[in-house]
Amino acid sequence: MGGPYFAGVDVGSATAKAVLVDAAGKLCVHVVVPSGGNLTLAADKVLAAALAQADAVTGDIAALIATGYGRESVAGRTRSVTEITCHAKGAHALYPDARSVIDIGGQDSKAISLDPTGMIRKFEMNDKCAAGTGRFLEVMARTLEVPLDEVGPRALTADRPAKISSTCTVFAESEVISLLAQGETVERILAGLCLAISQRVNSLATRTGMAPRVIMTGGVAKNTGVVRAIEKAIGFPLTVPEEPQIMGALGAALLARADAAK
């Protein structure tokens, strides 16, 4: 396969993502790998995997934009752009009628509102803790001994959510343990956790002002329990892309292409 390709590499706290688009802006390949402890290594690994999939070499990359929490660790980047700009770009490229984006990743969550041209009007991010993020769900799933991909479906089977008063990962963990001790069902607890996350995201969403169509991106968008709870909280249906995790990398790749066109 021939280049040139435009690459987007999104190094998050939990996973690293790479996307290659061609000169026409068409998505060619996408790869997701765990970030691990070494972000530079994760960036190299994910880009190498993407190149291998495209049967291409580094020289085929015309421009590369790095994004995400580890964006400064990506070697060979043309420049770095924040994940806010990239998620907005990726979501708007796939859904030109998108007016809002909710992104919940491994360690942060954000709400972005867009104008009709896809320009960012306003954005809000969670404060300095893992409350209500992917990491929060991971810790809770481990405490409850439920595989991560079963959290959503099982939460949806609950007749009512258990009351979880805190989204602080540390406090919620002990709350969950005490709920278990009181004989609360795992399903209700899971539903309660999804509700707690949705309430937290809703406050970010309210501050930015949500309007349809709302796109949800990031790894947590794969959790149907959280998706349904957020829809209820914000009062709009959510559109979840087929691969919600790669929206940031896709946005970065498209920005790399736009840069080159200048």
Partner: peptide, 16 residues
């Protein structure tokens, strides 16, 4: 975290 917020704010302000 604050650096990222400022970066994102300036990116959108400049784009606008």
């Amino acid at each position: 975290q604050i650096g990222t917020r400022i970066d994102a704010f300036m990116e959108s302000l400049i784009a606008r």
